[in-house]
Amino acid sequence: MLLNQFLLLAAVLFSIGVYGVLARRNGVLVLMSIELILNAVNINLVAFGAYHGTVSGQVFALFVIAVAAAEVGVGLAIVLLLYRNRQSIAVDEVSSMKG
């Protein structure tokens, strides 16, 4: 198999994820898009690991999965807090940093 086919798939997923992060308004959907980005990275890690014949890629992918779990946990807690304070999870309404 070509290395490229995995890398290209990852590139597509990554770009879709970026689009989702920027275009979605619902906090939960933004978090889902971040998961897409992380998965794209994981594909790259595993593919390169196989390409170079080492297990390091897999190990790093496992670490990324663990970090993603932590990220979703904290992210959802923040969204929950947001909802509790504002009765809405629309991320574009959170603009108290406006200069």
Binding site: M1, L2, L3, N4, F14, S15, I16, L22
Partner: peptide, 28 residues
């Protein structure tokens, strides 16, 4: 939402080009 498109499409183009350019026919 179009901001996302404006960023994501060039990003995809750039990534694809870079990947293709670098690892043309390498096999796993």
């Amino acid at each position: 939402w179009y901001l996302g498109l404006i960023v994501a499409v060039p990003l995809l183009a750039l990534l694809s080009y870079a990947v293709w350019d670098q690892w043309g026919d390498d096999h796993i």
